[in-house]
Design a protein around this nucleic acid. Structure first.
Length: 947
RNA sequence: GGGGGUGUGGCGGAACUGGCAGACGCGCUAGAUUUAGGAUCUAGUUCCCAAAAGGAGUGCAGGUUCGAUUCCUGUCACCCCCA
């Protein structure tokens, strides 16, 4: 009668933990602390996905284990709840995004509680809570109040910014405008991605293939007033501090590449008559290299100054400031049209390798400073205004894009780098300008620099350029400043006021909303329909909100809102002190808890979220609000959970089977016949219909083995219909089974296919655990008669100690799949034992408890304990009891196992060798052979080399 | 095109610094038990040969080594990210 019934047990223990606040974070950290954090979810209308509990279970196991080893644990959960879907829902149904969001959060909380996670729910936060985003706004004001001192490599208060005399002499307004140029949060009129359908401007990373990432709507480029965050100032530190954190190397590299630090040189090419070049150069040597862009020269950034002798033309971006000045009257109309067309294209389109490079000649020439040769200046959109100086020197012999461009427009190609022999480049063709070589080698056609290796040449030529002040070494980044404003309703309002003059126009003076007036809440609006103009929806707010009057001065509020990233940049700090009304975090508590010891989440946040959060963290650190330079000590990315494996076969229009290797996908992502392009029917097969090919690697139809079929797991998606709902799994198998299955599937960081049969497998294991302790035949819930105060046998004790050792070690390394398999072995062993000592069952239940907490609590109680096991001491093992006295040692001849001998552990090499050579089977096999060598590894093996 | 990752039974996956390949689970096969089972228990399950003896075997081809899933070189396939 008392079968294992998670549907009854689990809600009961969840209520117990809730009512007793079992997992409340202690107010004081005593001993070692653990801050285990999940990447908090966006509470979508679809509810929890099986991907969520994967990482959450992992941190939960670590947290529960840590409590049992005596650590003080902070394990919180919250919601990243601003964002597009809620706003789209609001527009569609003309309902408040707040209500919708809160409803979704309630669902998420219910689902998370159903899984039995040991979160401290008193610390639950949402980025949309007014009490939360008050401090998001406050942090924005810290960014607004900070400038980056490049010499000290540190963010400092704007009041400490040195003001040049000519500015301070020009009055207070001039000083304020000067300061505005240096703030980490600043306004800019950058070209942005305007998406008419969404009615908003998108960040570059939200645009894919010229379409919006959300909704696939067309995106066009237009200039707009925007807020930017000067993340580029922190590029160096964001890169170098990665050395200090325990993150996967792949993620570190991704961040490094995103930051894209490169070293090279800035070089000025004189614009003017060839005759005046020497005069200009001599003047330069006198004045030095100008800090700002000169008007009598075109400045380029290059990572390959060693190819300067091969620079045969120059290219400037269509948006480059000097386009007009450099365009001759004759070329005027052509250049104008070209620039207008380029404005319609996205950066991505322009850099796409597949599209033909295009460009137009400006009519002007610049002088190459190294050899005095004039080179033509072109405008082309494969050069971006935002990278480097927006102008390049083109070296077609040694850059693939320049080469393609030069071929298209018949520009001269001069090879100046001789490839090393192993590069397999046809030297003759390279010299003839028929191929391009982008690697390093030795210099040719480079006057006195000939024969220098590339690296050495770079140093020499920079020295030479610096000596005449026509160039200097320079560092450049791919990282761009962060476009921080959105034209949306459902986001944090900026706490910024724009001063207005009598006529109601902006004076250009901004002031932060006074701290005592924070938060700036979202205004009430009548409806959420976009007006289709780039101006933000908050422009629809009433005048009372929009035009505050302070000290008799009229202001207009900033109506942009912050991007979704804002709230997630600092939530890990708020969890430490979620209710603080006077500060975003108490400094004492911050010191106790930071940094986050373990941060688990999806790899999709490898670049943006983690980079943005690190940036904010560093600014707050510089300004003295935080004690650690990095927020997340250890980061782990969980793998993606794919749908169940699917078998797919294909039929042509005549209903004939087509083998999978003859098919391909066309541009419309339809499956077609490779040879003719004929569209095929895609048939989903029952796994019964497919089998593995004889002596092959493919799956084929059982009914016709000539026909290969596709076998793979796909990403879960609504459209494919392979989404697994955790609620259903909990109802059918229980939360403990779901938790256990997700951990048992495979290594945490790996992506792996879902399998319903696998869930059933771990449920069987939990059933066996139940039966190991519970008498299923009894009327009441009582211990099985096999369980009692028996004296454990040596074998039984060893089994326990081995299991404790393995499970403890696996939790440390997050190897949960193997930890579970070890517990399975324990249960398999003890279900066969007719006497199961209670003294061994109890520690086992403790081992199981982080994985399957409900079942463990239930059995712990049944074993006679009156309180929760959440803070029981983690079982300890005795190393001596984890090893068997006897060990089986294989004996090999020429590396092939011939026999095995069972001997006492710890025999020496000599003893082993003697024993092996005495073995009757080995003696027989060695007849007629000469033993050349015997390798004996104590407790491992013996290998006899004989012939 | 660039970067990262992964290739081990029918499937998910084990194997610590090179030392018994296939732990554990699923599936499958046979048997027991049961009114019944998609329950439970027992045994078996990498492949080849009817079995034994034996042989082959960690994507493929080489190399280093007494010994390679593990290290090296080359190569192929798939997945992810970026362009």
């Amino acid at each position: 009668m008392p079968k294992y019934n998670p549907a009854e047990i689990e809600p009961r223990w969840q209520r117990f933990w809730d009512e007793n606040k079992t997992f409340k974070t202690p107010t004081e950290v005593t001993g070692e602390k653990l801050y285990a954090l999940d990447m908090f979810p966006y509470p979508s209308g679809e509810g929890l996905h099986v991907g969520h509990p994967e990482g959450y279970t992992a941190t939960d196991i670590v947290s529960r284990h840590a409590r049992m080893v005596g650590k003080t644990v902070l394990h919180p959960m919250g919601f990243d709840a601003f964002g597009l879907p809620a706003e789209e829902h609001a527009i569609k149904h003309n309902a408040s995004p707040r209500e919708f969001t809160e409803k979704n959060i309630n669902t998420f909380v219910r689902q998370l509680k159903d899984l039995g996670f040991s979160y401290d729910w008193d610390r639950q936060i949402s980025t949309t809570d007014v009490d939360y985003f008050k401090w998001t706004q406050w942090i924005f004001l810290v960014l607004f109040d900070t400038w980056f001192d490049a010499d000290q490599q540190k963010g400092r208060p704007i009041s400490e910014l040195p003001i040049p005399a000519e500015i301070s002499g020009a009055g207070e307004d001039a000083v304020r405008k000067y300061q505005d140029e240096f703030r980490l949060a600043f306004e800019s009129h950058a070209p942005v991605n305007w998406c008419p359908a969404l009615g908003t401007v998108l960040a570059n990373e939200e645009v894919v293939d010229g379409l919006s990432d959300v909704g696939n709507h067309p995106v066009q480029r237009m200039p707009l007033r925007q807020w930017m965050l000067r993340i580029t100032a922190y590029a160096d530190r964001l890169e170098s501090d990665l050395d200090a954190v325990d993150w996967p190397e792949g993620i570190k590299k991704l961040q490094c590449d995103w930051i894209g630090r490169s070293t090279g040189a800035e070089v000025d090419f004189f614009i003017g008559d060839k005759d005046q070049f020497e005069t200009w150069k001599n003047a330069r040597t006198e004045t030095g290299f100008p800090r700002n862009l000169p008007t009598d020269a075109l400045r380029v950034y290059t990572t390959r100054p060693d190819t300067l002798y091969g620079a045969t033309y120059m290219v400037i971006a269509p948006e480059h400031g000097a386009v007009e000045a450099l365009t001759t009257a004759e070329q005027g109309p052509t250049v104008k049209k070209y620039c207008d067309d380029a404005a319609m294209k996205s950066d991505r389109d322009r850099q796409d390798d597949r599209t033909k490079k295009s460009g137009v000649f400006t009519g002007s020439y610049a002088i190459n400073p190294i050899n005095g040769q004039p080179v033509p200046i072109w405008v082309a959109d494969y050069v971006l205004a935002s990278y480097g100086t927006g102008a390049i020197m083109a070296v077609p012999a040694h850059d693939a894009r320049d080469f393609e461009f030069a071929k298209t427009y018949d520009l001269p190609i001069i090879a100046v780098v001789k490839p090393p022999a192993k590069a397999e480049i046809d030297l003759e063709k390279l010299m003839a300008g028929e191929v391009c070589f982008a690697g390093v080698g030795t210099a040719v056609n480079s006057a006195s620099f000939d024969d220098l290796p590339t690296e050495e040449f770079k140093i020499k030529i920079i020295e030479s350029l610096e000596s005449t002040s026509v160039g200097r070494s320079a560092v450049n980044y791919k990282l761009r400043d962060w476009l921080f404003s959105r034209q949306r309703f459902w986001g944090e309002p900026f706490p910024i006021l724009h001063e207005l003059d009598e006529a109601g126009n902006r004076t250009g003076i901004m002031r932060p909303v006074p701290l005592d007036s924070l938060p700036v809440d979202l205004p009430f609006v009548e409806d959420f329909q976009p007006h289709g103009r780039p101006e933000p929806p908050l422009e629809k707010a009433d005048d009372e909100w929009l035009f505050p009057i302070i000290d008799g001065k009229k202001y207009k509020r900033e109506t942009n809102t912050m991007p979704q990233w804002a709230g997630s940049c600092w939530y890990y700090l708020r969890f430490i002190d979620p209710k603080n009304e006077s500060a975003f975090i108490d400094p004492e508590l911050e010191k106790q808890w930071m940094p986050v010891d373990l941060y688990i989440g999806g790899a999709e946040h490898a670049v943006l979220h983690l980079l943005y959060a690190r940036f904010w963290h560093k600014v707050l650190f510089d300004r003295g609000y935080l004690s650690t330079p990095e927020p997340f000590k250890k980061l782990v990315n969980q793998g993606m959970i794919l749908g169940d494996v699917e078998f797919t076969a294909f039929r042509d229009t005549n209903e004939q089977w087509v083998s999978a290797e003859l098919t391909c996908e066309n541009d419309d992502r339809k499956t077609v016949l490779q040879s003719t392009g004929e569209e095929l029917h895609v048939v989903k097969l029952d796994p019964e219909q497919a089998e593995k090919e004889k002596n092959g690697d493919h799956f084929v139809l059982k009914s016709d083995p000539q026909i290969r079929v596709d076998s793979r797991a796909y990403k879960m998606s609504k459209s494919r219909g392979n989404v697994v709902n955790p609620d259903v799994i909990i109802a059918e198998y229980g939360a403990d089974s779901l938790r256990l299955y997700e951990m048992f599937m495979g290594p945490l960081h790996q992506s792996k296919p879902w399998s319903m049969a696998g869930v059933n497998g771990v449920r069987n294991f939990l059933d066996r655990v139940w039966r190991m302790l519970v008498d299923e035949k009894a009327e009441e819930l009582v211990l099985s008669s096999a369980v009692g105060d028996h004296a454990p046998t040596d074998e039984q004790t060893r089994m326990l100690h081995k299991t404790i050792k393995a499970v403890s070690g696996d939790i440390e390394t997050l190897g949960f799949n193997t930890a579970i398999s070890r517990m399975m072995e324990f249960v398999n062993f003890f279900t066969k034992q007719s006497e199961r000592p209670k003294s061994l069952m109890e520690p086992f239940i403790l081992l199981l408890s982080p994985f399957a907490p409900h079942l463990a609590e239930e059995l712990w109680k049944l074993l006679g304990n009156n309180s929760s096991l959440a803070y029981e001491s983690w079982p300890k093992f005795d190393e001596a009891l984890t090893v068997d006295a006897l060990v089986e040692v294989p004996i090999q001849i020429m590396g092939k196992i011939k026999t095995k001998i069972s001997i006492e552990r710890g025999k020496s090499k000599q003893e082993l060798e003697t024993l092996a050579l005495q073995d009757p089977k080995i003696v027989t096999l060695l007849e007629g052979l000469t033993v050349r060598k015997v390798i004996a590894v104590p407790d491992k093996l013996v290998n006899i080399v004989a012939n």
